[in-house]
Design a protein around this nucleic acid. Structure first.
Length: 331
RNA sequence: GCACAGGUGGGUGAGUGGUUAAAGCCGGCAGACUGUAAAUCUGCUCCUCCUAGCGGGGUACGAAGGUUCGAAUCCUUCCCUGUGCA
């Protein structure tokens, strides 16, 4: 049985009831769509405030996936300590729950050093898992999933939804019958816990404690963002995305880690001869743009975000961000 | 110049007399999301006028005419595009 990370004394210690002498230290969160300049802003803030950067981008956690992930460069990583980059082997996988566990440990360590933790991320679910916590659900069961998937393929379309309907009607009402991955997870939770997933949700989650959180959101004008996305996605191909993907494919096969993610999926299609290079590039650009939109949809619901309508590398925005942090440190 | 093929909504592409303001796909916009989330899924999407909304009206399938109760669909001419022959 794997230890429940929520019970770790350091992470989930109840806050003291009596007023604390010193307020909780600050935690800066930079969120925003892909290519909005989160990295640049994080570097600026880290240098200014002795910060340490904690990645919150799911794909950037994988080793050997380099060009397509727009990780901070080696030079950038020299400017401030970086965490949770390159921590997952290419043929393994990480989940939101696992991310939250290790990210919380990392945050605690930064706190101990007295530095300013700066969480930088585009993965909404990971951010939520870190900040708000997930419900205490079971881990994935590959066997069960395999069984469900193969059964679903041989049966009528609504099959999985029907199963969930019987197991947990409330969950079934919330998950669309076409959304196979979410249906599978819900069924998995019900079966593994012998309880309904919606009941499990009621047990609540464990939010991150011990920090005052300052959320800064980058929201540059959409047209400009899309231009940057197009340029960056194209550049990834110029820098050798195809070659990198080919090597990864050879080493780990096509189900390795984030092979289905932005850019890599298109590179794989090209390598297989399914599309030509211009189409692969265009398709990758499109995928990045669509992703940016989805990220904004997610982040708009995030509470207490200080939104800024510009890119993270614009000096005026950086000045505002610096002021925001200064003001928060003051309180 | 002649011969074929073709010109449909932001793109692509169905539709070959009425049930078509026009399928599907893409794009665009909006949304969902509780352990692989850079994943997965959902809704809306011609213009215009009236209506709070239901809804109703007007335009529209290269252009102009024509046939017909009725046309994106049939006919004529014209304009474009591609291919073949000269």
């Amino acid at each position: 049985m794997r230890p429940d990370f929520h019970s770790h004394p350091l992470l989930a210690a109840p806050r003291l009831e009596r007023p604390l002498i010193a307020p909780d230290p600050l935690l800066v969160v930079i969120l925003g769509p892909t290519a909005s300049g989160k990295t640049t802003l994080s570097l600026t803030l880290a240098e200014k405030y002795q910060g340490e950067i904690v990645n919150c981008d799911s794909v950037a956690m994988y080793r050997e996936f380099e060009i397509g992930t727009a990780k901070p460069t080696a030079a950038e990583r020299l400017r401030a300590p970086h965490h949770l980059l390159d921590v997952v082997p290419p043929n393994a996988y990480i989940t939101a729950g696992e991310y939250a566990r290790i990210a919380r440990v990392t945050l605690q360590e930064i706190k101990t050093r007295g530095n300013l933790p700066i969480v930088v991320g585009g993965t909404g679910l990971y951010l939520r898992a870190l900040l708000d916590g997930l419900f205490p659900g079971p881990q994935r069961s590959e066997k069960l999933r395999e069984r469900l998937r193969s059964r679903a393929n041989s049966k009528a379309p609504g099959h999985l939804h029907g199963i969930l309907q019987r197991l947990d009607p409330a969950a079934a009402a919330q998950i669309h019958c076409n959304d196979t991955p979410k249906l599978i997870r819900a069924i998995e939770v019900c079966l593994a816990t012998r309880n309904q997933m919606t009941e499990m949700w009621k047990q609540g989650s464990h939010p991150l404690t011990g920090f005052r959180i300052l959320r800064m959101g980058l929201n540059p004008e959409r047209g400009l963002l899309y231009e940057r996305i197009n340029l960056r996605a194209k550049r990834m191909f110029d820098l050798g995305l195809i070659e990198e993907t080919r090597a990864l494919l050879q080493k780990y096969g096509d189900d390795a880690g984030p092979m289905k993610s932005l850019g890599y999926r298109q590179a794989v299609q090209f390598i297989r001869g399914e599309i030509d290079l211009p189409d692969a590039i265009q398709s990758a650009q499109q995928a990045h743009r669509n992703y940016a939109k989805r990220q904004m949809t997610w982040f708009r619901r995030e509470p207490d975000v200080k939104w800024m309508t510009a890119f993270g590398d614009e000096s005026e925005l950086q000045r505002k961000a610096i002021d925001l942090v200064a003001a928060s440190l003051m309180n």
